[in-house]
């Protein structure tokens, strides 16, 4: 087990190397550049700017230089936000996204599993139909509809919760609507996933054995059904976590949250090379780390997976 963890962890290094290299060249080969948006700059000015950002050097030299910087966790200056470095930008925005994302993930997992259990146990009864209708809404209605609708009801009509995030308002209530909005599609997916998986396990032979042993239905569900049924949910956590902290552009715009989703999209539009790279690196790092954790967790949950 310990050996497996170390080996699995070391395999993250080549993965990250490939991701950094591939995205570095992919971005450079895309048409346009960080300065192509500026109009009518004198040739000399462009030359000076290229020199300042080392873009006059051969591409491979730039790559080596960049790689060295990344190893020191220095993502360089931003091409667009002249006042701050990429590191500073990320330090500002990332905690907000992480916080919202984690809260949303916890919310969606807890309620998703709960609703999944209820609808599986009450299959084809009103509880099931109600939950699955809610799940279909969550999966099919886009966030830019759910967010404003929640704002309309809870902020503008009922005045229970603040409409948007402001720097003055630091109470928890501001986060409630964006977190619910962000969690909704993930909640819906997890609810459907756990329902389907529980229904399958309920028909398993070993569940029949458990019932034939005289165990009460609650023990059968809690002890014999859930462990196997929730494995698919665990493996979904990796991509869900990565998605939930990056995919918040719409939510951030709706609720005026200064998160990382917004600068992610802007950096791509601006060809802000260093900022794009930094975000790609950080997101892939999170994704591979979370998948690494899920793999280890899987080993504890499913004894049939042998770590050798």
């Amino acid at each position: 087990m310990g050996k497996f963890i170390i080996r699995r962890f070391l395999s993250l290094i080549p993965t990250m190397f490939v991701i950094i290299t591939f995205s570095f060249f992919l971005i450079r080969f895309a048409p346009g550049g960080p300065f192509s948006g500026e109009k009518n700059l004198p040739e000399q000015v462009i030359q000076n700017m290229m020199k300042k950002y080392h873009m006059d050097e051969p591409l491979f030299t730039q790559y080596i230089r960049y790689f060295g910087d990344v190893l020191r966790w220095d993502f360089g200056p931003s091409f667009k936000y002249k006042e701050s470095s990429v590191n500073e930008l990320i330090e500002q925005c990332f905690p907000v996204s992480i916080m919202l994302g984690s809260a949303a993930l916890v919310l969606s997992v807890v309620f998703g599993i709960l609703v999944g259990i209820i609808s599986a146990l009450k299959q084809n009864r009103w509880q099931d139909y109600l939950s699955m209708s809610l799940a279909v809404v969550g999966i099919s209605v886009p966030l830019f509809v759910i967010g404003p609708v929640l704002q309309l009801i809870f902020a503008m009509k009922l005045h229970w919760l603040p409409l948007t995030w402001t720097s003055r308002n630091t109470s928890v209530t501001f986060a409630l609507l964006p977190v619910i909005t962000l969690a909704f599609p993930y909640f819906a997916y997890i609810a459907r996933l756990s329902r389907a998986s529980i229904l399958e396990v309920l028909r398993a032979d070993y569940v029949r054995t458990a019932r034939a042993k005289g165990l009460s239905e609650n023990v059968v569900i809690a002890k014999h059904v859930l462990k196997g049924a929730l494995l698919p949910v665990v493996s979904y956590l990796g991509p869900a976590f990565a998605g939930i902290i990056t995919g918040s552009l719409v939510v951030e715009s709706t609720f005026a949250i200064p998160g990382i989703g917004r600068i992610f999209v802007q950096s791509a539009l601006n060809r802000d090379y260093t900022l794009i790279m930094a975000e790609v690196i950080i997101f892939s790092l999170i994704l591979v780390l979370v998948n690494f954790l899920v793999d280890i967790l899987y080993g504890f949950l499913d004894p049939r997976i042998a770590y050798k």
């Binding site: 070993y206 029949r208 042993k213």
Partner: peptide, 25 residues
């Protein structure tokens, strides 16, 4: 009935490969 199942009347099933819970010792 549960007090009888597994106690006074117990069952073994056809497929031993799937009749035991794979996740429990």
């Amino acid at each position: 009935l549960r007090a009888i199942r597994g106690n006074k009347i117990s069952m073994i099933f056809q497929d031993p490969m799937t009749s035991l819970n794979p996740y429990l010792r």
